[in-house]
Design a protein around this nucleic acid. Sequence first.
DNA 1: GTACCTTGGTAACGCGCGTTAGTTTGAGCG
DNA 2: CGCTCAAACTAACGCGCGTTACCAAGGTAC
Lengths: 352, 352
Amino acid sequence: MANTPPVAATRGVTMADVAKHAGVSRTAVSFVLSKRENASISAETRTRILEAVQALGYRPNAGARALASQRSDWYGIVTEIVTAPFAVDIIKGAQDQAWLSRRFLLIAPSDQADAVGPNEGMEDAAFEKLLEQRVEGLLYAATFHRAVHVPKSANEVPTVLINCFDADGKLPSIVPDERAGGRVAVERLLQAGHTRIGVINLDPDIPAAVGRLEGCREALAGAGLELDPDLVVSGYATADGGYEAACRILDKYPAGAGRPSALFCLNDRMAMGAYDAIKERGLAIPQDIAVIGFDNQELIAAYLRPKLTTVALPFEEMGALGVQTLASLTAGQPITAHQQMVDCPLLERFSV
Amino acid sequence: MANTPPVAATRGVTMADVAKHAGVSRTAVSFVLSKRENASISAETRTRILEAVQALGYRPNAGARALASQRSDWYGIVTEIVTAPFAVDIIKGAQDQAWLSRRFLLIAPSDQADAVGPNEGMEDAAFEKLLEQRVEGLLYAATFHRAVHVPKSANEVPTVLINCFDADGKLPSIVPDERAGGRVAVERLLQAGHTRIGVINLDPDIPAAVGRLEGCREALAGAGLELDPDLVVSGYATADGGYEAACRILDKYPAGAGRPSALFCLNDRMAMGAYDAIKERGLAIPQDIAVIGFDNQELIAAYLRPKLTTVALPFEEMGALGVQTLASLTAGQPITAHQQMVDCPLLERFSV
DNA sequence: GTACCTTGGTAACGCGCGTTAGTTTGAGCG
DNA sequence: CGCTCAAACTAACGCGCGTTACCAAGGTAC
């Protein structure tokens, strides 16, 4: 008996059904399934219950469990999924980590189509929705490193910011270590023998530009060099912007007359444009001019020819660390630091 | 009175609290909040209740509501988020559509890090987790158009496949209309005056290649032309593969001696490689050779120089249509077709 | 006056589960 | 034999909510 196909009959199978099937009380089933330490259930009864679970294809009801136990095992993450070349990596890191700790990650978009008015309103809706699900903690992920204002409702549960930081300085955050990343990039160029390095900069005001340039200066200083301001040009953070910026640098200095032998592009898209500028002038990468990028935007860096050496933004790691931090917070443990910085590793490919 | 800050006091505010605050029964509150038609509640009582909701910062408990009403308003989507250049677009389309219909989309990864054994097991776990949340419907999204086997548990709730189809032919699916896409691409080249068109093909066996090539033939036939088999070369679906394939075509035919004046690349990554092969030979795009791609992989197509004209895979539309189809199914309505095909629109940029 | 509405509510049940406070049984011990 | 105590359970409550009864008061119609 009890050999009915588990799957088909599953809808609506409850713990009471399992109990009846096994000839025990519902409480006994609950004890066995929640693996309580101090539960005194005989080995024989336990196996009978587990068999019944199998036979009926019982599946716990997560909502009911959350209601009764007053804990949901759910975290929520709010992110701008629409502009998401990167957000998806944060989500992936967070998902994996959540899965490992047997939690479920609810994902809510911060930029809904039907939302009207300023951004505040949209994000509020996302936070509200997640709180209605009774998430135990919240993550807020930005697609580029910046300061953000978080809706007040985020104060109701532990909240961690990823790839951004609280403009009011209250919430814990996780950001990439831009400075160390800039340093490692330029150190790589120095190690390859380049001493005159052009820098294709982003908007100089954003945290990414500030940190990466600072790291660049540190690296140069370590080699007894200084950053030549004439070699730093800014542009729009696009391939076109990178193309134009590279043209300006290359055309300012003819070959041999102070022309840099390497370009540090502060993001990969600009590096993509720089490639074109270099190739147009009949120069070879990396023989004539080395290029190093930043971001590791896979679809660009891994498909450019030659493949681009770049510094990776640790999105997955930040996502994972976000969940870990949340786990500490919800467990009432103190966290190590208010702002955690994650390393940006160098990815060697073929452009240096 | 009743002017306490709504936000801070919110945790744990229940309908009973609202009822007490408003001096009515909990049932009355429930009636007002669920906006039932036949509920007889005086306007005065209603406003008193709504004021209490505001004052206390009441937020419904989605889990409890689902438990009591036996419906969750949740859909689940399973996808390979790790390899997700495209999956994210499907998710975005589905999210938006779900949000519009006041539903919540739970996202589960089909490729978890800790999962062991063959793929089957991993996806099973994702489906199980979602079913534990009592989702009302399931979406399964693939990152490239192909046949899939879906875990048996998917039979328990309405399930729709996106960008793939059921190998057993049972589940409804939504796929891109590859054939029409191939046709529109080649028609665009014909319209620009090209009659000798090279094709850089994918693995000829996959559905995308079959459909796109078929569309290509249709377009040629419409102009009284035939596809020259010598002009069709296959390669790995990468930039390198596209580069090599383009080299083979270009080197086989010297200028003027039957060299095609346009290349139809069956995906954008291969087009990226073809760009390099063309530029290397001192040829200009599109003046000497026009290039058209497929997929509209934004980070490539929009940043190549010149920007790539390509046919877009309608990921967001497919995601949205998936949710709509699911909504029909869960509402018990019949769906229009077992397999729905979504148009692949031509995106004009500057390579033709 | 009685029967029968409609309006404006409320009491109480149950959704599936975790959990606490019992209850029964049998073994051990003096 | 009577007592205690651990082992192996079960009864029952409550989580927050939707929903189905039911009820009281006031108005009509005859």
